[in-house]
Amino acid sequence: MVSVKYQKVLYDVSPHDFKILDDDHVYKMSSEINHSISSSSYRHIYWSTVAESGLITQQVSLVILFTILFVHLDTNNLQPINILIINALIGLIGLFLYRQHISLKLLQENFKTLSIFLLFGSLVSPVVFTLTKTISTDTIYAMSTLMMLTHLIFYDYGSETAMVQKALSFSVALFSSVCLASRLSTSFHTFCLVTSAVLVFALWPELRKYIKKSSFEIFSVLTIVHILGCIILLFHLSMLHMILYALAILFLTFLCPLWLISLQKYKISIRGAWEEAVVPEQTKDKFE
């Protein structure tokens, strides 16, 4: 005969675990959480969030820098050959930074990929150059602006959410670049802008992730360099656009983190015995 004290149950849940929290309990729980965090902790969290927002700031600045490059190519203030030389130097520096140990075989593979890209780009540039001749310039600019906004919305900023679409983000950025490149004066200008788009929207983000993972201090310096570069270049183009850019950066870098932290008091996670058990990473390492 089995004792009543020891029941044969695989999983038992107390009715206390399923109690419904009323509004008053929720308010008290939120107040306790807020009072338990000191002002110094809030300052630390705020500045950490500001530093992490540098990824958003950099990506917005890259879109602005690419637009400035298009404007200078369109007005013939920059020669395409100079842009290609700068792109080649940046690509080589990025390769040596990203690949710490470079072998001869790796250089051959990279050179092969680069040759295929240059050959394919030079062949396609005349087609891209005449691709949108029947479409008005205002339509092209409006469509390019919409595509760049879509790129910024769906870009991978490091959060694992369903909204992040890497392929869509890169595709719309490249499509916008092709539309802008079709408005330049020659096919060589078109090839130069498309090459710069691949460098800016495909290669540079990967190198930037590597830099952030290796040294967050260097990543923060890159954020400042992006902002200063945009401000200086926009100052020579338009004072109004420079002011709008500075206000947008202030909003994204300083006000949005403050807004995000202020909303944390409304976030409540109710946990109980009904949830699936999660093994901590430290425990996993011990068993492995």
Rank of each mutant, 00 (worst) to 15 (best):
L95G: 11
V9T: 15
S122T: 15
Q59N: 13
H16K: 13
S122I: 15
H16E: 05
I56Y: 06
T283L: 15
L258Q: 03
C179M: 13
M143T: 09
I90Y: 12
I135N: 09
Q79E: 10
L118F: 12
Y141T: 09
L114H: 11
W204E: 08
Y11N: 06
A246W: 11
S53L: 06
Y245K: 05
C179K: 00
M239I: 13
L107C: 02
A246M: 14
G272N: 10
L244V: 15
L168K: 00
H226N: 11
D74H: 01
L21T: 07
H44G: 04
A248W: 12
L114M: 15
P126W: 00
S214Q: 12
Q7T: 15
A167N: 03
K213R: 06
S215K: 13
Q7G: 12
D12V: 08
L95E: 15
V172D: 00
F254N: 14
V63Y: 01
I81K: 14
A181F: 12
P205R: 03
E288C: 12
K209I: 07
T139L: 04
L263T: 03
F154P: 04
W204L: 11
K267M: 06
E281S: 09
S220F: 13
I140N: 07
W204A: 08
F18E: 14
S39L: 03
D17E: 12
A51Y: 09
V172K: 07
T283F: 04
L263Q: 10
T113P: 03
K166F: 03
T145G: 14
I68D: 01
L95Q: 14
I102M: 02
E160M: 09
C230N: 08
L203G: 03
L228M: 00
H226M: 14
V200F: 11
W259K: 01
Y27W: 04
E32K: 05
Q58L: 08
L119V: 10
P80E: 04
I68G: 08
Q100G: 00
H72M: 08
L240R: 13
S103L: 03
A142N: 08
T132L: 04
T130I: 06
F129I: 07
L180P: 07
K267F: 10
N110P: 01
T130L: 02
S215F: 02
S238E: 03
E217R: 12
K105H: 03
V50H: 06
S220Y: 13
L123F: 06
I45V: 01
I232G: 01
V172R: 02
E32P: 02
T195V: 04
W274S: 05
A162M: 02
F120K: 03
F18I: 14
R271W: 07
G229H: 07
R43G: 07
V4H: 05
L180A: 02
P280M: 10
Y46M: 11
L234K: 10
Q59P: 05
K265C: 00
P205C: 07
K265F: 01
T186Y: 08
M242A: 14
T49G: 00
D22K: 05
E52P: 11
L193A: 04
L240T: 09
I90M: 12
V164C: 00
F120D: 01
